[in-house]
């Protein structure tokens, strides 16, 4: 009787997305944090809420963006609530882009993902610029490199999320 009031598809989908988020976090924290090219590391966390928002819908993108943001703020100790604000916004913006501007294809996700990555890097740079009077050019360099190093992971994020979004889990 109680199972009738629970949407099993949504529940299973949520659990799978949560597991995917944990996997992305593990890759970010355990692998990418140790690989530095010209002193800059990749930051792939924004790709997750963008993928969920584009492929699953706005509410999903925002909820998992919020979860992703809270975890990122815990991981990166210098930010208090920066990612908690940015990630849900990215999830929602990705849904809006898919609804009005682009399709759900890989090329569209690549473009939206790249924009999201750069926006996240700029948000991190803004914190340094506003609070600590950082110079613009070095921050721009780091933002561009951080975005560039994260781009190859777009492919790794897109296909599993699309497979999950298109599958019925009833």
């Amino acid at each position: 009787m109680y199972l009738d009031i629970i949407d099993l598809d949504k529940l299973r989908r949520s659990i799978l997305y949560a597991l995917m988020l944990i996997a992305v976090m593990a890759v970010q924290e355990l692998i990418l944090s140790r690989i530095s090219i010209f002193g800059v590391r990749a930051m792939i966390m924004p790709l997750f809420p963008i993928a969920v928002g584009m492929l699953q819908g706005g509410a999903w993108g925002m909820v998992f963006g919020l979860l992703c943001g809270i975890l990122c703020d815990a991981m990166f100790s210098e930010t208090l609530v920066l990612f908690t604000i940015v990630m849900p916004a990215l999830g929602f913006a990705a849904t809006a882009a898919e609804r009005f501007l682009v399709t759900k294809r890989l090329t569209a996700y690549f473009a939206v993902g790249a924009a999201g990555l750069f926006a996240t890097a700029l948000a991190q740079a803004l914190r340094v610029f506003v609070l600590y009077d950082g110079e613009l050019l070095p921050m721009l360099r780091v933002a561009v490199l951080q975005t560039a190093y994260s781009l190859p992971f777009i492919f790794a994020m897109y296909f599993p999320c699309r497979a999950l979004a298109e599958r019925s889990l009833d």
Binding site: Q28, E29, F76, Q124, R127, V128
Partner: peptide
């Protein structure tokens, strides 16, 4: 652990 952010230098 060292913080993996590109925007700060800190460790735990």
């Amino acid at each position: 652990n060292w913080n993996s952010s590109n925007w700060s230098s800190s460790f735990t």
